[in-house]
Computed example of a mutant assay.
Amino acid sequence: MEPRVPENDSLVMQFVLVGLTDSPALQPILFVIFLLAYGATVGGNFSLLAAILTEPKLHTPMYFFLGSLSLLDVGCITITVPALLRQCLSKERSIPYRACLSQLFFFHLLVGADCFLLTVMAYDRYLAICQPLTYSTRMSWGIQKASVSMSVVFSFAHAVTQTVALSTLNFCGPNVINNFYCDLPQLFQLSCSSIQLNEQLLFAAAAFMGVVPLALITLSYAHVVAAVLRIRSTEGRKKAFSTCSSHLTVVGIFYGTGIFSYMRLGSVDTSDKDKGIGIFSTVISPLLNPLIYSLRNPDVKGALRKLLTGK
Rank of each mutant, 00 (worst) to 15 (best):
H59N: 13
N45V: 02
L36D: 02
F64M: 07
L66M: 15
M62E: 15
K57G: 15
P61T: 13
N45R: 04
D73G: 09
Y63W: 09
A40W: 05
S68D: 06
V42T: 00
T60G: 06
L36C: 13
H59V: 06
A37N: 08
G44L: 01
M62H: 14
T54V: 13
V74F: 01
L58V: 07
M62F: 10
F46L: 14
K57C: 08
P61N: 11
G75Y: 06
L36Q: 04
T41K: 05
G44N: 03
P56I: 14
L48C: 05
G43R: 05
L58G: 02
K57W: 00
S70L: 08
I52G: 01
T54W: 03
E55M: 07
Y38M: 05
T54R: 12
L71R: 04
F46H: 00
G43S: 11
V74K: 02
E55T: 14
G44P: 05
K57R: 15
Y38K: 03
Y63M: 13
H59S: 12
V74W: 02
A37Q: 13
N45M: 04
G39Q: 10
Y63G: 04
L53P: 01
T60Q: 08
A50G: 02
E55Q: 15
A37T: 09
Y38N: 04
I52L: 07
L66D: 14
L53N: 08
S47T: 03
L49G: 04
L69R: 05
A40K: 05
S47R: 02
V74A: 11
E55C: 14
L66I: 14
L71Y: 04
G44V: 00
F46S: 11
H59F: 06
I33N: 03
P56K: 14
G43V: 04
E55D: 15
L72K: 09
A37M: 15
L35R: 13
L53A: 12
T54H: 10
L35G: 09
L49W: 02
E55L: 06
V74C: 14
Y63D: 11
N45S: 06
S70M: 12
L71G: 13
L36F: 14
F46M: 11
I52F: 03
V42M: 05
L48E: 04
S68N: 08
F64L: 08
G67Q: 06
G67A: 12
G67W: 01
N45Y: 03
A37L: 15
L71I: 08
L35F: 10
L58H: 02
A50E: 03
I33R: 02
L49M: 07
A51S: 14
G43N: 07
G75E: 12
P61H: 10
A50L: 09
A40C: 08
L71C: 10
L36W: 02
L69W: 05
I52K: 01
L35T: 15
G67C: 06
A50V: 00
E55N: 15
I52V: 12
L66H: 13
I52R: 00
P61C: 13
